Amino acid sequence: NQASVVANQLIPINTALTLVMMRSEVVTPVGIPADDIPRLVSMQVNRAVPLGTTLMPDMVKGYP
């Protein structure tokens, strides 16, 4: 099973992602692959992302 990117904390709308905000976890449904975490750094979320939420491609501005 492939690990996905999961919010490690509440991420407010328009926040630029940092490594501490994300963790990898095997979840269903599958979200953004954990391998993409380095690419996500400094990209902004377009909505508030609660703790434990799987990051989906449509939540991150400019992804992929």
Results as ranks from 00 to 15, higher is better:
Asn8Asp: 12
Met22Phe: 07
Arg39Tyr: 11
Met43Ala: 10
Leu10Ala: 12
Val60Asp: 01
Ala7Leu: 03
Met21Thr: 03
Val41Glu: 08
Val49Thr: 04
Asn8Gly: 10
Val20Met: 08
Val60His: 01
Pro38Gly: 12
Ser42Pro: 00
Ala7His: 01
Tyr63Phe: 09
Val49Phe: 02
Met22His: 00
Val20Arg: 08
Leu51Cys: 05
Ala48Met: 13
Asp35Pro: 11
Pro50Arg: 11
Val20Glu: 10
Asn8His: 14
Glu25Pro: 00
Leu51Trp: 14
Leu51Tyr: 15
Gly52Tyr: 04
Asn46Asp: 13
Gln9Lys: 10
Gln44Pro: 06
Asn14Val: 03
Ser42Lys: 12
Ile32His: 01
Asn8Thr: 14
Thr53Arg: 13
Ile37His: 02
Ala3Leu: 11
Val26Tyr: 07
Arg47Ala: 09
Ala16Phe: 13
Pro12Cys: 04
Ala34Gln: 05
Thr28Ala: 13
Val60Gln: 00
Val27Thr: 09
Gly62Arg: 07
Asn8Phe: 04
Gly31Trp: 02
Met56Val: 08
Arg23Lys: 10
Ala3Cys: 06
Val41Asn: 04
Leu51Ala: 10
Pro33Trp: 07
Glu25Leu: 06
Ile37Cys: 04
Gly62His: 14
Met56Ser: 07
Val6Ala: 03
Leu51Ser: 12
Pro38Val: 10
Pro50Lys: 13
Ser42Tyr: 08
Thr54Pro: 08
Val30Asn: 15
Val20Lys: 07
Tyr63Asp: 05
Val60Trp: 01
Gly52Trp: 04
Ala34Val: 09
Ala48Ile: 12
Pro64Leu: 15
Arg23Asp: 05
Leu17His: 01
Ser4His: 02
Asn1Pro: 13
Met21Lys: 03
Pro57Thr: 06
Thr54Trp: 03
Pro38Glu: 12
Ile13Met: 12
Ala48Gln: 15
Thr28Leu: 12
Pro33Met: 07
Val27Asn: 03
Arg47Met: 13
Gln44Ser: 11
Leu10Trp: 08
Thr28Arg: 10
Val49Arg: 02
Asn46Gln: 08
Arg23Ser: 08
Ile32Gln: 01
Pro57Gln: 08
Pro38Arg: 10
Pro50Thr: 11
Pro50Asn: 10
Ile11Pro: 01
Val41His: 04
Asn14Met: 09
Asn46His: 10
Asp36Gly: 07
Met59Cys: 04
Val49Trp: 02
Asp58Ala: 10
Thr53Gly: 13
Ile37Ser: 04
Arg47Tyr: 10
Asn8Trp: 04
Ile11Leu: 09
Gly31Lys: 01
Arg39Thr: 10
Met22Leu: 13
Pro50Glu: 15
Tyr63Glu: 05
Ser4Gln: 02
Gly52Asp: 10
